[in-house]
């Protein structure tokens, strides 16, 4: 039983790795700062949560599991705040989002 739970944890960790790669591709490919922040924060929160959940299942009930829970709370507290600060700083320094409709010019071009 413990072995099976451990394997579920391993699958979750691999899923987290997949999400991280998706996030990295997004950071490289997306057109402007805000969509890139969006991609990066998916890595920060989604992948990190899956990773800690997977490691929790692999570690079983132990002091390490409690530490993992604390780490998860910290990630949930810090990375959205960091993404918010990043977006705020980008907006403050004059970056405007790239809009989808080419007929509607963005503020940059106006």
């Amino acid at each position: 039983m413990a072995e099976a739970i451990g394997w579920i944890g391993a699958v979750l960790v691999i899923a987290a790795v997949g999400l991280s790669i998706a996030g990295a591709v997004g950071v490289l490919r997306f057109p402007d700062v805000y969509t890139r922040i969006h991609a990066a924060s998916i890595t920060d929160t989604g992948a990190a949560s899956l990773m800690t959940l997977g490691l929790l299942l692999m570690a079983g009930f132990s002091p390490a599991a409690i530490k993992l829970c604390i780490v998860w709370v910290f990630i949930m507290l810090t990375s959205p705040a960091a993404a918010h600060a990043l977006a705020g700083a980008a907006f403050g320094s004059g970056h405007r989002p790239v809009l989808a409709d080419p007929r509607q010019p963005s503020e940059d071009e106006a």
Binding site: A85, G88, A89
Partner: peptide, 8 residues
């Protein structure tokens, strides 16, 4: 950069 932001 984000002075006064309540979130931060």
């Amino acid at each position: 950069a984000s002075a006064g932001s309540p979130v931060l």
